[in-house]
């Protein structure tokens, strides 16, 4: 329940943070010239409206928590609990793999780093068939290279290992 409530504050939280940054930044934009509004007008208006909307969203979330707090012993809907269970560990693993892949690719080269990345991501998706993983990964990397670099002329990095 507690995690659920925190998660429901995440989107309005992101909105509020964006509002703050936008307001703080657009205050420094050049002023309007010749009666015609300058670059600050639209971001300012949007930031204010977004701020109000996110406050309304937070209020809504608080109200819902109070309501559900009272009726907590009543039956909780099964779909809610299913949605709430986030596979944190696997999600973190995949995100880390993606970030690492992007950092390493220019240095290692496209085909080799992509092979490793696909193999690791298969592992994250719980596909564990030993050598099959690697065969799929290396094949996919070559096909992608052919498709993007050779056919579509996309410059892919070449590092110390292909």
């Amino acid at each position: 329940m507690r995690v659920d409530f925190t998660l429901s504050l995440l989107p309005p939280g992101i909105f509020l943070a964006t509002t703050a940054v936008a307001l703080w930044q657009s205050a420094t934009f050049p002023k309007a010239a010749g009666g015609v509004p300058g670059p600050a007008l639209v971001p300012m208006i949007l930031a204010v409206v977004l701020g109000l909307a996110s406050l309304a969203l937070v209020t809504g979330a608080l109200q819902r928590r109070n309501l559900s707090g009272k009726s907590e012993n009543l039956k909780s809907r099964p779909e809610d609990t299913a949605k709430a269970s986030v596979p944190w560990r696997r999600l973190g693993m995949l995100l880390a793999a993606i970030v690492l892949y992007l950092v390493v690719m220019p240095w290692m080269g496209f085909i080799s780093s992509t092979t490793v990345f696909i193999a690791v991501s298969l592992f994250c998706f719980d596909y564990r068939k030993g050598i099959h993983n690697w065969a799929f990964a290396i094949l996919a990397a070559y096909i992608l290279y052919a498709l993007f670099a050779l056919l579509m002329n996309v410059p892919l990095p070449v590092g110390w290992l292909g």
Partner: peptide, 17 residues
């Protein structure tokens, strides 16, 4: 599972391309 891995890499490459 294979599909998901393929979608992931295609998405990353597509964004780059």
């Amino acid at each position: 599972k294979l599909l998901l891995a393929s979608i992931t890499i295609l998405a990353l490459l597509g964004a780059y391309a």
